[in-house]
Amino acid sequence: MTIPVELFINALIAGILLGGFYAAVTVGVSISFGILDIVNIAHPAFVILGSYIAYIVNQRLGVDPILTAIMVLPAFYALGAMVYQVYYVSFEKRGQEALRGLAFFFGLLFVTEVTLILVFGVDYRYVHAAYIDQTIRFGAFDLPMRMLIPCVIALMLLGGLQLFLTKTYTGRAIMAVAQDQMALQLMAADPVRIKRIAFALSIATAAIAGALLIIIQPVEPSVGREYIGRVFAICVLGGLGSLPGTVIGAMLLGIMESLTATFYGPSWAPAVAFGFLLLTLAFRPSGILGR
């Protein structure tokens, strides 16, 4: 089989853009699972919640989804802080996070999804913005704006978070949580407070990711489920808890999915992420960038 070069390069470009967006969806889990060791499988549900908020505001007031996301950041941050508090008191403190903590997040995921179905139904919803239908063309190569803008915003988000984690006192304390709690106490920081801040931050990123998602594609409540596997695949692929690793893992997955969809058909694309996750877990659990 000869592969048409232009088709291949277009698929590659689409994959990179998609990967950038995937990084935005994943970064929350990179923080909660990778750094804090909290297996928040409900994260994609919060992303979808973000999408629907962006949808309502866009539909009622015509506000740009990204602007909406920035405005609701504090609300998502507060929501995250609340969820962590419940998680901490109910599971982490009692040392029951393994079984019941997982069931808790699974329940949250499910409740969020069903509530959205009850309120909005299962129809696909989408947003309007001037740039969504535009495409930049370089000869035979396409850069659709609805992919490019999410990718750029996502990279800005990750860059900002990386700066925060490495350059600020709070950020460094968050990274220290991953290493050991003792070091944290030596820094005279309260581990619970630090973890609450970090988890709240991870949920806040879902607001942005949700807005990006609904720019890229129409959304219905169960779309979030597809992202559970992707997000954890990327997380493990990139090595747990590393934001640069997250970007690389996301790009790799985006490219693989895009190539699969182009050459084998879109119905195979979901299995790529999950298949890759299974293989990574089985053979290289420390991630492709790991030791």
Partner: peptide, 27 residues
Amino acid sequence: LTLRLRGVFFAIATLALAVVLQTLIVN
């Protein structure tokens, strides 16, 4: 494949398994 790892990885792998199998069946 997964039980040599920590428990959460098994949980995540089972999530993945469901989607992989569903994709296989769909196709």
